[in-house]
Each structure stands twice: as C-alpha cells, then as structure tokens.
C-alpha cells in the first residue's frame, strides 16, 4: 500500500458519504444562505428589513436570547455546583449519580414536555402538592417562567456532563500545594480552582446557549406556536397551514446561525491568551 498518494482509487470509497453529507447537511445550509436573500425573482435584503421592522420577529429574537441566557447561566451555575458536590463524593455513589445524570440528559423533547405536564401542568402532581401548601398559586408551566424552568432542567445534566471532565482535571496536588502555601478552601477556589475551570465553563456556556437557542421540540410539544421564539417562528413559516414563507424562514435561520456564531466568537474572545491547560 502506498501511503501519502493523494489520488488513489481508495478515494472512491469516500464518495457515497460525501454525496449524502453534501445533499442532506451542506446543501440545505447553502440553500438557506441563498434563499434568505431571494426576493421574488431577484436578490436583496428585504427579508432582513422586514424582520427588523417587525416587533413580532424582534420579540421572537429577544425571547430566544432571553430564555437561552437565563437557562444557560442558571444551568451552568447549578451544574458547576453539582460537579463540585460530585467531586467530593466517593466512588460508588459518584458513579451512580453520574449514570443518573447521563440518563436525564437523554430525556428530552416531547417526552420531557409530557413529563413536565404530569409534574407541573395545571393538574400536575407537584403543582397540586404545592398549592395545598399555599405556594405556586399563579404558576403556569406554559408561561415564560414555566419554560425557563423546563429549559434549565434540561441544561443542568448537559452542563454537568460537559463540566465533569474539567473537574476531574483539577488535581488534588494543587489543593494540597495551595494549602501548604497558606490558602484556605475559599482562597483555593478563588485563585486556582475557578480560574482553571474558567475556560471549560465558558465552553460549556456556549454549548448550553446554542442548545437553548436551537431547542424546538420541547417548546412545541408544550405550547405549540403560542410562545414566540426564533425556532418556533422558523418552523411555522415552513410548515404552518397557511402563509408559507420559506425565504423569510431562511432569513430568520441565518439570523439564528449568526447569533450562535456571535456567541462562539465572544467566548473565544473571552478566552484569548488563556491557553494554559497542561
């Protein structure tokens, strides 16, 4: 076998994969990028102008960002605390809890929405229980708060799974060395623990944000088209019963991708010069 020969017949084996991947992953993306600028038979920024002028679409954008930020930050905070807790728990228990986390991270979309209806819906088990104690009187799962709770719920296990390796990377010798140099628990976390975790936390935050912004199934199963989010709007523009506007959906899609890209860029910017991972 001659290695390094670039144009060998072996390359033919790549062709079927390349075809399928292009046709069903790259081409749709390219199509979206093009059709966003397609106006009638010409080209232009009309769809973006329409979106910018519409309070409805601006609201969708804003709410997507809002719920992504809130649920990602809350999810990151809770996941960090949980990982810290897990780092202090011994072998067997720890393995069980991590397996459980893995399990909950698989619980998403329609089944998740349904489970939350059972738990926190108008007649949900927890809703009834809490109302009996006079709490939660005006709570609705289908409101902004309700959605934020369910988003945060699915962000936590994902955040934990992403952060656990970083926590495992915290070496016990650092804590020991720090303690011999006079640092207590708080000083250790402030000067060493958190700074070392910081890049992973930022990376996790970016993934959580992307996850939240791209979420569709859970919200759709819960409130249908009744909560104004980017993904709901996009889906509605291509699959609603009336007024299909695929070009407008493409424009909104591009905006969504731009948002995700911007978040990644912000993260990279925040982490500039922090490449000290051993």
């Amino acid at each position: 076998m001659i290695r390094g020969h670039r144009w060998s017949p072996a390359l033919l084996c790549l062709l079927p994969f390349a075809l399928v991947f292009c046709a069903f992953q790259l081409a749709p993306l390219g199509y979206v990028a093009l059709s966003a600028f397609r106006v009638g038979t010409g080209w232009g920024f009309d769809h973006f102008r329409e979106i910018a002028a519409s309070t409805f679409y601006r609201q969708a954008m804003w709410r997507s960002i809002e719920i992504a930020l809130v649920s990602s930050l809350a999810g990151l905070l809770i996941a960090t605390l949980a990982c810290y807790g897990l780092s202090r728990v011994g072998g067997g228990t720890r393995r069980v809890l991590i397996a459980f986390t893995n399990m909950t991270s698989n619980f998403a979309g329609v089944p998740l929405a349904f489970a939350f209806i059972i738990l926190l819906g108008a007649n949900g088990a927890l809703t009834l229980a809490l109302q009996r104690f006079g709490l939660f009187e005006s709570f609705s799962l289908y409101s902004r708060t309700g959605l934020m709770i369910i988003y945060t719920w699915f962000q936590v296990p994902l955040g934990m799974l992403l952060l656990l390796p970083a926590f495992a990377g915290l070496r016990s010798e650092w804590r020991e060395a720090a303690s011999l140099l006079g640092a207590g628990r708080v000083a250790y976390w402030r000067h060493i623990g958190l700074p070392v975790l910081w890049p992973s936390m930022m990376g996790t935050l970016t993934i959580l944000l992307a996850n939240a912004i791209g979420t569709y199934a859970t919200v759709f199963a819960l409130v249908g088209n009744n909560y104004n989010l980017l993904t709901i709007r996009i889906a509605n523009l291509v699959s609603g019963d009336l007024f299909l506007q695929p070009e407008l959906a493409s424009a909104l899609s591009l905006i969504t991708i731009a948002l995700l890209t911007a978040m990644t860029l912000v993260q990279q910017h925040l982490l500039r010069g922090r490449t000290h991972v051993e």
């Binding site: 010798e173 650092w174 060395a177 720090a178 011999l180 006079g182 060493i192 700074p195 070392v196 000290h276």
Partner: peptide, 30 residues
C-alpha cells in the same frame, strides 16, 4: 495552612493558570 512547611511534589503541582512569577508569589500573597 498554619504549619509553615514547604513541600515540593513529584509532579510539580504548579498552578497552570498562573505565570511562574505568580506561582512563586502565591504563598506570599496568602
């Protein structure tokens, strides 16, 4: 923290987020 004993570890245990100067200064800062 209170023993005033220094220790050098087999695998250095340097704080990866700090420069050489900050690593050395850490004990003094504390």
């Amino acid at each position: 923290q209170k023993r005033d004993i220094g220790m050098v570890f087999q695998h250095y245990a340097l704080f990866p987020n700090m420069s050489v100067r900050d690593n050395v200064a850490f004990g003094l800062r504390m």
